[in-house]
């Protein structure tokens, strides 16, 4: 198991360098530079432009810039935003809880309902429920977030008025960011100051529902389909027949003997959803004006804020890689054949 972890860790290092190279290159491929975007092309004086670029170190050849970037990374220096002069790490840690809260809720939503739908669809194969779930999941999977998100806002928030249109909480509440997780902060605020903040927690929940569903739809569909096909495959296995021949109850056959084995590939898929969630958060946060990493990165790209884009993406990507690393280890725990492999 220890060597298994070491081997997985070894794979992470080249991946990490790949990401630095790609983000570094991609942001420089977009036309324009930070100074141009800041000032606007027509009023830009070439001399001033060159001086500003020199001050930022952007006049150097690309390989020098890249080397400089990576060597700073090794010293733990993630740079500062060109706009706010605030360090990228500080900005990230301030905004990340909002994204994490949304992504976690979406992941829990997707996993719980995805597993449930997948398992029931597999057991009731060929039924109306099965066809319904599979049809819906294909729709959910194929629907772009920006279409589905806007439609959901129009229908549920504007037409039906069930949920708020955007933001994390109503402005009339006085909620101090303590943990950065709005659900916890609102709950605390309500306890501390019941007069002003009565109903703050419920309001935070209402704000969270629609973005959670919109962000969770694609992972939900993916997990449901994967669970179903994996369950169907395992249900045909000889050892499931053995379990039945032992006279075990249907619940035991399904949950102990089938689901345990069917979950192994599903676990990997759930881990991969973390990447999907981070990518989806960018769009979802933009639609719902959710003050998280996604919105922050979109704005940084808009103003060619090289340090924020490079290092913001690097941090997010590292988180995704680490999550998948953890999933790989869980996979090893779930699957004795991998755990014991030499």
């Amino acid at each position: 198991m220890f060597s298994f972890i070491l081997r997985r860790l070894g794979v992470l290092i080249p991946t990490f360098f790949g990401i630095t190279l790609i983000t570094f290159a991609l942001i420089r491929m977009i036309p324009g530079d930070p100074i141009e975007v800041m000032v606007g092309e027509r009023t830009l004086d070439p001399v001033m432009h060159a001086a500003a670029m020199k001050r930022l170190g952007l006049d150097q050849p690309l390989y020098v810039q890249y080397f400089d970037y990576v060597s700073k990374l090794f010293h733990g220096d993630l740079g500062a935003s060109l706009k706010t002069q605030e360090s990228v790490w500080n900005e990230f840690t301030t905004l990340f809880p909002a994204t994490l809260e949304l992504a976690l809720c979406a992941l829990v939503f997707a996993t719980v309902f995805g597993l449930l739908a997948g398992v029931v669809a597999a057991i009731k194969r060929g039924s109306m429920f099965d066809h319904g779930v599979m049809g819906l999941s294909l729709t959910g999977f194929s629907m772009p977030i920006f279409v589905w998100g806007l439609l959901a806002v129009m229908f549920f928030s504007v037409f039906l008025g069930w949920t708020p249109v955007s933001g994390r909480i109503d402005l009339m509440f006085d909620v101090q960011p303590q943990t950065g997780f709005m659900l916890i902060d609102a709950w605390r605020a309500e306890l501390l100051d019941p007069d002003i903040n009565a109903g703050a927690f419920k309001d935070a929940v209402m704000h969270l529902i629609l973005p959670t569903i919109v962000l969770g739809t694609i992972p939900l569909a993916t997990i449901a389909r994967m669970t179903r096909s994996s369950m169907l495959e395992v249900l045909r296995e000889d050892y499931v027949r053995t379990a039945r021949a032992k006279g075990l109850s249907p619940a035991r056959v399904i949950f102990i003997h089938t689901l345990r084995n069917a979950l192994i590939p599903v676990l990997t898929v759930i881990g991969l959803q973390v990447g999907t969630l981070m990518g989806g958060a960018v769009l979802t946060e933009t639609i719902f004006s959710w003050p998280g990493i996604g919105k922050w990165l979109i704005e940084a790209i808009g103003r060619r804020d090289y340090p924020v884009v490079q290092n913001g993406i690097l941090i997010v990507a590292t988180l995704v890689i680490l999550t998948n690393f953890v999933v790989d280890i869980l996979y090893g725990i779930a699957n004795p054949r991998i755990r014991h492999a030499k």
Partner: peptide, 25 residues
């Protein structure tokens, strides 16, 4: 009722032992 007999009074072994045991337990 059948499950009280199957696996207890009537037991069965199968053709391919390598796939008849659950790999996870």
């Amino acid at each position: 009722e059948r499950r009280k007999i199957v696996g207890k009074d009537i037991a069965m072994i199968f053709q391919d032992p390598m796939t008849s045991l659950n790999p996870s337990y």
